[in-house]
Computed example of a mutant assay.
Amino acid sequence: MYFFEDFAPGDVFELGTVSVTMDQIIEFSETYDPQPFHVDPELALASPFEGLIASGWQTASLFMRRYVDGLLADSACVGSPGVDEIRYHRPVRPGDVLHARVRVLGSSPSFGRSDTGIVKPMCELVDEEGRLVFSMILHSIFERRLTREPVMPMSIDPVHPARSA
C-alpha cells in the first residue's frame, strides 16, 4: 500500500504496457471525439497524419488505466485537484504498444489537511522505440501513513461554525 510518505522526488514507477488496436481507436472516437482522422481509416489517409490515429483523450485514458492498475489500486490515493501540461508528442496509431511510467517530481503536505499530501508525478507513455508519445503533470492526493484515519469530506456546521471539521 502506497501512502504519501512513499513518494520521493526522482522515484520512478514502471506501470506496464498497453496495446492499441484500430477497433479501440474507432470505438472510443465515435463516442467521444468523432473527427475523421480518428474514426475513418480512408479519410485519415488524406489528413496531415496520413492515417488513423487515437484521440489525445483516448491516449490520456490509456495512461490513466495503467496508472490505476499499476499503482493507484494499491494505494491510499483519494483523488486529484488537477492536471497540468498535457502534451501529445507523437500520434498513437493502431498496433502501437505503449509503456507507461511515472516519475515523481515532488510532493508536499496538503494545505489545511494534515492527513493528506499531494504527490506531483510526471506521467508518460513511450512507444516501442522509446519515443515519448504522451506526457502530463498530475497532482495526486494521498493519505498520510502517520494519520491512518479515513479521509472524510470537510463539513461546515451552519449553526456552530467553530465546531466544523
Rank of each mutant, 00 (worst) to 15 (best):
V159H: 11
R131L: 00
I118W: 04
V39Y: 00
L146H: 00
D33R: 13
Y67M: 11
I137N: 03
T31I: 08
V119D: 02
G130I: 08
H89I: 05
S19N: 10
D23C: 04
A73S: 14
Y88E: 00
F111V: 07
S29A: 14
R93T: 07
P158F: 09
D69A: 14
D11W: 03
Q35D: 07
G95R: 14
V78L: 08
F7Y: 05
A44S: 14
K120T: 04
D96W: 09
P81Y: 11
P34H: 09
S135W: 03
R101G: 00
P161V: 05
S107G: 13
Y67H: 13
S107W: 01
D33T: 06
S108A: 07
E14T: 12
M22R: 14
S55H: 06
Y2L: 11
P109V: 08
R103A: 04
A8V: 09
V119T: 09
R113F: 00
S19R: 15
V12S: 02
S55M: 05
R66P: 01
L132Q: 14
V151H: 09
V83S: 12
E5K: 14
G112T: 05
H89P: 00
E30G: 09
G16S: 12
V18S: 08
L15T: 07
R66C: 03
F37Y: 15
V126A: 11
Y32C: 04
L43F: 00
A46C: 09
G112M: 08
V68T: 11
L45M: 11
G82M: 12
S155K: 13
G95T: 08
Y88S: 00
V78P: 04
G10V: 11
S55A: 12
R90V: 02
R144Q: 02
F7Q: 04
M1G: 11
D40W: 09
Q24I: 03
H160E: 04
L146S: 14
R93F: 01
G106S: 13
P150F: 01
L71H: 13
S19M: 06
R90T: 02
S110N: 12
V159Y: 08
T59E: 01
Y2F: 06
A8S: 12
G51S: 06
G16R: 15
